[in-house]
Design a protein around this nucleic acid. Structure first.
Lengths: 167, 167
DNA sequence: TGCTAAATAGTAATTATTCCTAAACAGGAA
DNA sequence: TTCCTGTTTAGGAATAATTACTATTTAGCA
């Protein structure tokens, strides 16, 4: 995703945010990243350009961008927050071995029907599917054993292909 | 979900776990709960029965139960872990206002087709849909405004009913 | 060019969780 | 039943991520 400084500035202005070099660099780093980095990782990414920059600034900036809706927080495990500047509807593929997160872009997943049995005064504004399993590399290294200490694993085996019969 | 002490003991034995009163109480509390409590909340729930019990024991126990596959960790936000003893496939409805989590049980959601464009050596073992929005109570109190500081919100508006065409 | 509110950087504080260790105990063996 | 041993517990200390506080700096407007 290529984006110029001017583009970033316009986005920030559109949200009523001041444009500072640090802020632009953090946002740019997140836009270019595909790994859903943590605050610390973004800090490491941007720090070379701004040796005086504080990790605090990264946290503050991420908070501001999140509140403005320019980025999303992705919660894979409870230990640390990860961030995503990709606002288009997409889903995630999470490796339980190495905790990596890959974007899943499949339009079919954006057309789920409304779930049954939910309170009718609940207004759903979005939904997201998290696929979990083991990436090729982790399968080879761990002999396909699943790390049960990782979060959210369900016993449902999905295998190579999920079956798509309509109930 | 009703379960006797003997049932719990059998489950523990099946996993090679010793049965202690504290452990059984923690697991039982989680089985009876529908709110996906945190370690602290479970501690508060069980503490009256065991005044000497340490919060540490709750953490240790939850770790053991998770490793044994008896419970799951649910990650809604990065601030703290939440737990779920309901192992049957289900999904979650998350209120961005009050952070409450309600189970979504809809068989149609358990038959998603395999997502396109993922690495073909990735083995998916489970998936879970997180629906986000505002519960009735929070909508009334906040005037339907969505709290953008909450995690993972996507701009896709889902409204009352998602449309289920099979693109 | 100034003004002012917002942003930055630094330090300290907080919160959830994990680590460490001695004492207690569950469950199998004798 | 009683003993043994490894697991579990409880308590305190340590760690890691994040937030709070604050003085200084700066972006963006008048």
């Amino acid at each position: 995703m290529e984006i110029s400084f001017t583009d970033i500035k316009q986005k920030f202005q559109g949200c009523g945010l001041k444009t500072t070099p640090q802020r632009a660099a953090i946002y740019d780093a997140l836009l270019r990243s595909t790994t859903h980095p943590t605050a610390e990782e973004l800090y490491a990414e941007v720090a070379p350009q701004f040796p005086m920059m504080s990790l605090n600034t990264v946290y503050y900036t991420l908070g501001v961008l999140r509140t403005s809706g320019l980025i999303h927080e992705v919660n894979i495990d409870h230990t640390r927050a990860r961030f995503d500047a990709n606002l288009s509807p997409h889903h995630h593929l999470i490796c339980l071995g190495c905790q990596s997160i890959v974007d899943v872009i499949d339009p079919r997943l954006n057309r789920l029907t409304s779930p049954a049995g939910i309170p009718n005064d609940f207004e759903i504004t979005s939904y997201q599917v998290a696929f979990r399993g083991l990436c090729g590399s982790c399968r080879r290294h761990t002999g396909r054993s699943i790390n049960h200490s990782s979060p959210g694993l369900h016993p449902t085996t999905v295998k190579g292909g999920l079956h798509g019969k309509s109930s």
